[in-house]
């Protein structure tokens, strides 16, 4: 979407235009859902939080001044919702960290076969992909929320440092050093799971 289109979409969103809102959801739902799913590791939670993200977009679109890209603003909302949900789940002592639900495993199966098997993945390769994907996802959910967010934004969603700074409100040096730390912790976690 070019800038003019985005500006037009935002203008219509600010007028609470339903068509524009539906278009906005369709345009950004995969980005939002992907980030939320990687952060929470559960399909049910990801669906619920993604909905809440778009409801917040609808409620606070008037406060969007266009200082950053709309997608960056959207990521910021999604990140805040994820952090809140993680805290809420921790408070409820939810057994989310160690276990991925069946739906999440299924989701991982879909994503890893499609990405690993650029030609045609054999069943064994697909299974290995699923196992690896599930190990990595489990390891991600073991990280604390700040590390998790940086890692997902940079290495999964492939955002630039500039965008990550806008989403998190952290300085560049802080982003880089925390990201480095997050990668080390993740590497250790993956190694522990694969042993």
């Amino acid at each position: 979407m070019d800038l003019r289109d985005e500006g037009e979409l935002i203008r219509r969103l600010q007028q609470h235009d339903e068509k524009a809102f539906r278009q906005c959801v369709r345009l950004y739902q995969d980005k939002v859902y992907s980030l939320v799913f990687r952060m929470l590791g559960s399909q049910a939670e990801a669906e619920d939080v993604s909905q809440e993200v778009f409801v917040t977009v609808f409620k606070s679109i008037d406060s969007f001044r266009g200082d950053s890209k709309f997608s960056t603003w959207l990521y910021r909302i999604a990140a805040n919702h994820c952090k809140n949900r993680i805290k809420y789940l921790k408070r409820r002592a939810h057994k989310q960290t160690g276990e991925l639900d069946d739906a999440a495993e299924h989701e991982l199966l879909g994503s890893s076969t499609s990405t690993l098997g650029q030609k045609q993945a054999s069943p064994v390769e697909a299974l290995e992909g699923v196992q690896l994907g599930s190990i990595v996802q489990r390891a991600i959910t073991k990280l604390d929320e700040e590390h998790r967010l940086l890692l997902v934004l940079r290495d999964v969603e492939e955002l630039s440092y500039e965008e990550i700074m806008q989403v998190t409100g952290l300085a560049e040096g802080t982003v880089k050093s925390r990201l480095h730390r997050a990668r080390l912790v993740l590497k250790e976690e993956i190694a522990r799971h694969t042993k």
Partner: peptide, 12 residues
């Protein structure tokens, strides 16, 4: 490479 290999999951 490991994380980007996870790919994007699509929303319902």
């Amino acid at each position: 490479s490991l994380l980007s290999g996870l790919g994007n999951v699509s929303a319902p």
